[in-house]
Design a protein around this nucleic acid. Structure first.
Lengths: 270, 270
DNA sequence: TACCGCTTGTGAAGGCGTGCACAAAGTCGG
DNA sequence: CCGACTTTGTGCACGCCTTCACAAGCGGTA
């Protein structure tokens, strides 16, 4: 059973240093079987990039490319080639030195690591502007995340099909999510409702949540939340606009200064 | 002029070590005026959190809270209190020891750092499902990012108002963006069109871009791009689902092992 | 005014991720 | 079969970010 999980696992006993499978007849109470997860060892940042590589590689497959070097792939993904190779090394060593990577092999291994070999049904809660857009968004289906259920509080919406799927009332969330094996919940409600919706998703057994509402959700440790806050993104951009403007005006001011006092050159240091 | 920019700046000459404002009649060719940006020193990660703090603080203002401690604010923002204080220290020291922070003072200083004292007009390109949702999304307006222009290639859409703003044809992008002083461009087009749209935005003088299209945009160094890729978010969640499932099955397998060979306890190490 | 308790602000340490640089390993041409 | 060339995989060092821990500072109280 354990062997099936692949060569990345270790099963060791901390006290005896002896493999558990050779377990002695009597094992002390304080002994532990430590199972180290290869998957756990992949940095979050690398996981995000793997998803990007996968997208680029899919495009390559469509173009009939069969082999690609780390240099080419990293350029297409907009990252450093060393970083790319390190990221791929988390997945395993599936490249050929002197040649590069077999595109299809790489695709299948990344898909395996990202868990894309399983089906991940998605439920969207909150069928407002954003919910509508998400329900109609083809990108989910096409990349293996079928939208299996839609929910809203508004009873007028109940039964109305959006993007081909009828909207359910939010009170049915537990039953429907369990029945349709929803593994990812998307919260696209107003902020006031988000925490309550989140709680209901969690009690329906959903362990992964993508939150578009601008609130910090409180969840148990075993639930994973990712947040997309458009206003925060805008404000980060705003910060950069301001920084640029500051730099420009500082440079301008400094140049004025030059003209006044005879300094030759202005350098804005990072 | 330089002094106006605040106490975070330094103006020094590297060769003479003498302040530039006291510049000697003759200044050597290799002298440099070095202007260090306080803004530049704020880590990107901290900027993102500042935006979150700002949102929480705005809620506090609405509730009539006038003072808040780092402990309370950090809890509400879902971060470590030490991290919060360090983040706020980048903004400046505006707290009172033994008391906490004055909410309104903090709000205004964070707004200043994030550049929210200026108006940032937004243009949305690509009025499909997502573009519609973005145009109608009230969160932009309410947080100081008025949507000033909409664009699409589809001539049937031209002139049709969406969210109260008429759609322009994409060929007019430069003229309209310049006229309405657009500082942030949002790309919500299909992936094939994204790079071309991006190039046109850049040549229209837009220096900040929020990209929803699943492609890596190539831009000049002086343009800031932030990316929101829903499929990538889903795949990251998928990875966590898979990891959980692996852990569960590993634990199960290990427990089976226990029953077989008499190990007492199984620990899954991070 | 002097003390006490509370909270900020920050020096320092530790951890994590990035990028460099190179050995290992494979292909290709002769 | 061999040597030259190409590209992977990774050890290592550096730098950024996070976290801890505590001194400094302020308000309240007697």
């Amino acid at each position: 059973m354990v062997a099936q999980r692949g060569e990345g696992d270790e099963v060791v006993t901390t006290a005896t240093g002896m493999p558990a499978v050779q377990g002695a007849p009597i094992v002390p109470e304080q002994d532990e079987v430590v199972v180290r997860e290869r998957a756990r060892a992949i940095p979050e940042a690398a996981v995000a990039r793997l998803a990007v590589y996968l997208r680029v590689l899919s495009g390559m497959v469509d173009q009939g490319v069969t082999t690609i070097s780390s240099e080419e792939l990293s350029a297409a993904a907009g990252v450093n080639s060393a970083k790319l190779r390190k990221d791929l090394s988390y997945v395993g060593s599936y490249g050929t030195r002197g040649v590069g990577y077999d595109v299809e092999v790489l695709v299948s291994h990344i898909e395996r690591i990202l868990g894309l070999t399983r089906k991940h049904s998605v439920a969207v809660v909150g069928i407002g502007n954003l919910g509508h857009a998400l329900a109609n968004y083809g990108g989910f289906q096409s990349r293996g995340f079928p939208v299996a259920a839609l929910f809203d509080v508004d009873e007028d919406l109940t039964g109305v099909p959006v993007g081909g799927i009828p909207v359910n009332h939010i009170d049915d969330i537990t039953a429907v999510c369990v029945e349709r094996e929803v593994s990812i919940g998307v919260i696209a409600t107003p902020p006031q409702a988000a925490q309550a919706v989140c709680d209901r998703l969690v009690s329906a057994g959903v362990q992964c949540i993508l939150n578009f509402a601008p609130v910090v959700l409180q969840v148990p440790d075993d639930v994973e939340v990712r947040k997309v806050d458009l206003a925060v993104e805008m404000q980060i951009l705003s910060f950069h606009v301001a920084r640029r403007a500051d730099e420009a005006s500082a440079e301008q001011a400094a140049n004025d200064l030059i003209n006044g006092v005879g300094v030759d050159r202005v350098v804005i240091r990072p």
